[in-house]
Design a protein around this nucleic acid. Structure first.
Lengths: 195, 195
DNA sequence: CACGATACGGAACGTTGTTCCGTTTGCCAA
DNA sequence: TTGGCAAACGGAACAACGTTCCGTATCGTG
């Protein structure tokens, strides 16, 4: 899983050494740029930071979304894996759900502009959207099902809808002291509860 | 209030006839363009629709936000005025709040891209943001205070925060059948309730 | 070492928002 | 009525951005 470059190995061909080197350089530069200027940072800035041309970025990451996914893949995986773990941890399913959502919110609000990008219907972000959906909706669904089966929450809400709502609440949550996304998400989860 | 063009009369000077004519043409064209292509429709498209040059738009409406505000001012006013009316209508304050929020949600979800623009931290949308805040936060605060005074809701949530959360939930609510902003807002309001 | 495939750099293109200025036009006074 | 000037207009021009493209450089292999 970590011999070739990028994600899936097309067949058996090994990438050129400079290409593999540039890929990690690019990931580092992008991560730094995202922290410094948000995920909307101009592609040229990332290229400059990495000391490469913009063409190199697009060869490695056909869309901006692919770059974002690559940068955050580890953290998304960690979040996804935390779902079943929380469920098994002993508390009520609703508590597990609340804690998992908290993890998700923490992730989103610390990545400047990521929540915005996630909700954008721009075609360029489609693969970002798809990745988050594919990876996190099943996990959320599992938590939701468990809580519903335990009779703790109303059963008429879908995992996609909830996750998207939570993501939406995190939009613009950076820095503004008058807007605390966490509290609103808490309210939303509270509203899910039966009685 | 309707003798001069635009909003506030600078001093006593009457605008030229063609300028006044162009202003209403522009408002009509913008309204139509917003419906057809969302509030992010390119300025050039609006200009073409109105049969004027882009310069004319910028003279009348220095920023895109000013144009949006002008187009929707009537509806925002109506929403603002509905707040006290609902409160006086006899139901519980919480019911009045819920119905008012519903009005706000209806307004937002039917204006393609408006919710997104509202949350954008782009400097160009600052005056849009400011107008909505100025006009609606006090109304929402009044409803919130009444409900809190009646002991129906937890008192630790601000009007700005709530309105912004609701606005956020409306982002991307157009057309997607798997995402029903209204239901999530309902959940949020339910979560506000004590017990 | 030579040569083909691979990858690179950055110029160039298309799309936007916004500004600027030469030209036109409405309005008022003479 | 007409002359002149401030107001308003149109759209070319600029800047910032994402994305594509292709001539050039480099790697790895025979």
């Amino acid at each position: 899983m970590a011999d070739n470059g990028s994600g899936a190995a097309p067949s058996g061909r090994r990438k050129r050494a400079d290409a593999r080197r540039n890929e990690v350089t690019l990931l580092d530069a992008a991560a730094a740029a995202f922290v410094a200027a948000g995920v909307d940072v101009p592609v040229r800035d990332i290229a400059a930071r990495a000391g490469v041309g913009v063409g190199t970025i697009y060869r490695h990451f056909p869309t901006r979304a692919d770059l974002i996914v690559a940068v955050y893949r580890h953290q998304v995986e960690a979040c996804a894996e935390a779902g079943p773990a929380l469920l098994a941890d002993g508390g009520t399913p609703h508590a597990a759900l609340a804690r998992w959502i908290d993890l998700f919110v923490d992730f989103l609000v610390t990545k400047h502009g990521l929540a915005e990008a996630l909700q954008s219907d721009d075609a360029a972000f489609q693969s970002l959207h798809a990745y988050f959906i594919d990876r996190l909706v099943p996990v959320c669904g599992q938590l939701l099902d468990a809580a519903a089966a335990a009779g703790e929450i109303r059963p008429d809400i879908g995992a996609y809808e909830l996750l998207r709502g939570v993501g939406n609440l995190c939009v613009g949550a950076g820095g503004n002291p008058r807007y605390d996304a966490r509290r609103l998400v808490e309210l939303l989860i509270a509203g899910l509860r039966l009685h």
